[in-house]
Design a protein around this nucleic acid. Structure first.
Lengths: 234, 234
DNA sequence: ACCTGAACACCGTTCAAGT
DNA sequence: ACCTGAACACCGTTCAAGT
């Protein structure tokens, strides 16, 4: 069919959108595969192009820049998660929400880096925020403190996941070896004689952190209630 | 004085060490200046070489790699800080310690990135750890929980400082504008109607986070004491 | 011992050219 | 509308050569 006889598209935007989305989807899938297999640093325009059998320059037809690609990847991964566990208890809701976020980060080790840096924060990051804020409101925390605590939990979760994924920063794991080589005799008396298990239990440490923060939330709520209405006990 | 008549060095290692340290010191100082002025990404072997009036390759006489330079910078910055406030109360000690760490990160915006990634963790990171572990031991927390809480506080402090320094991730600050454009009508009912002040008070939010964690520590200690010795009230 | 210049194998991105 | 190839201005690092 000669080009001139091709029917005008009734909804040109729709078709165009579809083709674009198909290619964008392929690229995003390839990018995730690359990140999961070889880390976020393995994504280059050249490697990603090769992964989909195209020239690096072909990518610029679908994304305006590398940053644009990383943002789309982050959005895709975060969007696919369900942060709302539908729990009646607000503590269970928060635990579930950050458990999901943490598993997401462990499954896609590049994700924390993508979210933290790269200006790649997608709209979908508001999903865990929404769940958490709702839970804290239920707990009796005001809007400001809820937001503050949400950011605290995000920093904690991303930090822990990054630490676990990347492996301990060189020389920062508290193995016997390190403590003998680098700490001994430098005035770090407590760190030197720390009694830790031979292997670090990341799951238990994560649960501990979440529980500690939730305890802190309860204490804050009680404190504020007492301060705002000292006669509530009457 | 002709070269052949120069006296043999009595302690060759010492003199050699001194010359090396001088050059290393110059390079570290130049690197910090570069980082503070233009961000950690501005450090390249070429830019750093130019800053000290030398070829990029000259740097390799004093550092084995770029990573080596960044580690030395991190160590220098962290070493200069005094994390021990000598406070009698363990809460004051912890507050002071992380206040110092936070100010360090705010003064040198590249530092969180240097510490988090880059495998650049210097031995000096054990200084704040030592202070914190000592404080938690005083509070009655065991070694494992102390270490867990220390890492929680580090993640929180670095995360908050990075967030404040870098400016909010694009589209993640909760301004009226963003909430109208990106949140409204997407099912984020709570986030949409959040009542926040027009400008975010980072100092107050940091204090809130620290206080919340300290409350959580107290609650954990009480809980463990009650569980371990239920008859303690007798 | 310290420094240099050229080179290598990479980057992200622009531009002109193809279909 | 989509893709390509060549090119540009960068990287960190190696190597051989200078003093």
């Amino acid at each position: 069919m000669p080009r001139s006889q091709r029917p005008k598209r009734a909804a040109p935007g729709a078709r165009e959108r579809k083709r674009r989305d198909l290619s964008r989807g392929k690229l995003i899938a390839a990018a995730i595969e690359l990140i999961d297999a070889r880390g976020a640093a393995a994504i280059t325009m050249r490697s990603l192009g090769k992964a989909v059998g195209a020239t690096p320059m072909a990518l610029y037809n679908h994304f305006s820049s590398k940053r644009d690609i990383l943002a789309a990847v982050a959005d895709h991964v975060v969007s696919a998660a369900e942060f709302d566990g539908q729990h009646a208890d607000w503590r269970d809701q928060v635990r579930h929400c950050f458990d999901v976020l943490r598993r997401l980060c462990l499954r896609h080790p590049g994700l924390p880096g993508l979210l933290e840096q790269g200006d790649a924060a997608p709209v979908s990051v508001f999903a865990p925020m929404e769940v958490t804020l709702r839970a804290f409101r239920q707990a009796g925390l005001d809007d400001i403190d809820s937001t503050r605590t949400y950011f605290l939990l995000v920093s904690f979760t991303l930090g822990q996941a990054a630490y676990q994924t990347r492996g301990p920063i060189a020389g920062l794991e508290l193995s016997e070896q390190v403590r003998a080589d680098r700490i001994a005799g430098r005035g770090y008396a407590v760190a030197e004689r720390l009694e830790l298990p031979p292997s670090w239990d990341f799951d238990a440490s994560f649960d501990f952190g979440i529980a500690l923060v939730l305890n802190g939330v309860e204490a804050t709520v009680r404190r504020k209630a007492a301060g705002a209405d000292p006669s509530s006990g009457r």
